[in-house]
Design a protein around this nucleic acid. Structure first.
Lengths: 134, 134
DNA sequence: CGCAATAATTGCGTAGACGCAAATGTTGCA
DNA sequence: TGCAACATTTGCGTCTACGCAATTATTGCG
């Protein structure tokens, strides 16, 4: 069990780290969050990353500066900001995910078709367990 | 598939990050490496972490300062160093792994027994695929 | 209206990770 | 022996992450 997560962990860490993608883990997490449920406000980001709001602000600063994230003040509540991906940001996330998918496929390629199918089923069950909503 | 890795990824990242354990990811990776095949030399660490040797040195500096790692010059080749865990370091790694095991068990607790068994089997197959030796 | 609560930002300080270049010590081979 | 190759370290500079305290802008309620 731990062995499996060891492999997956290393794999995910590697592709998530998005080595050549020029984004750090916290940055990628913000992008993923912004992609999942836009528009996101800063408090949500801070809560999700479990960091102080000031850090969330600065991480977003960098993403905005990098042209990956769009930050605008909300119409409904002008205290809040609305964060969403720019087209470039969307492309980058897609690229990172594709890279990750490729690595996973590469690893799984060494398994038998049956094992592969079983793994997919199991991970789906795990996903359902860990993320009941949606 | 990706969903599953998403869940596992978050989980692993969280427990690996070893939030309250006072070690960073690179540090933990060094400790795990040193535990897996001691004694490790610095070049190996640098290669494994894919960083410049100077960084490996400094990460080890911190671990030594923290009393988690033992660094001594090799007898056979006095250019090299031999890195190994101190008792404290060993205890810490054990603690981190136990924490991680607990989190995994907690998550898997929400799955049916059958799903759980299937997942364990699949991950073992994955581990074998990604790590044929041993 | 006035004021407390809320959202975000900014200034400030700290720590870790990282790369590069230069320096040091050690080994092994011509 | 002498020198090139190797292992590690040190000095230096940069970047990101992070927390805390103080500040600004905005909202909503008594």
């Amino acid at each position: 069990m731990l062995l499996g997560t060891q492999v997956l962990g290393a794999l995910i860490a590697e592709s998530m780290a998005s080595v050549e993608q020029h984004v750090t883990m916290p940055q990628l997490r913000v992008l993923l969050l912004a992609r999942a449920e836009p528009p996101v406000n800063l408090t949500t980001v801070a809560r999700d990353l479990r960091v102080h709001p000031s850090n969330a602000t600065r991480t977003c600063d960098r993403l905005v500066a990098a042209g990956l994230l769009d930050r605008r003040t909300s119409e409904r509540d002008r205290r809040q900001v609305e964060l969403s991906l720019t087209p470039t940001g969307r492309r980058l996330v897609t690229k990172v995910m594709r890279h990750r998918r490729r690595r996973i496929r590469q690893l799984m390629g060494k398994m038998s078709a049956a094992d592969r199918a079983a793994l997919a089923r199991s991970l789906r069950a795990l996903a359902d367990a860990g993320h009941p909503d949606t």
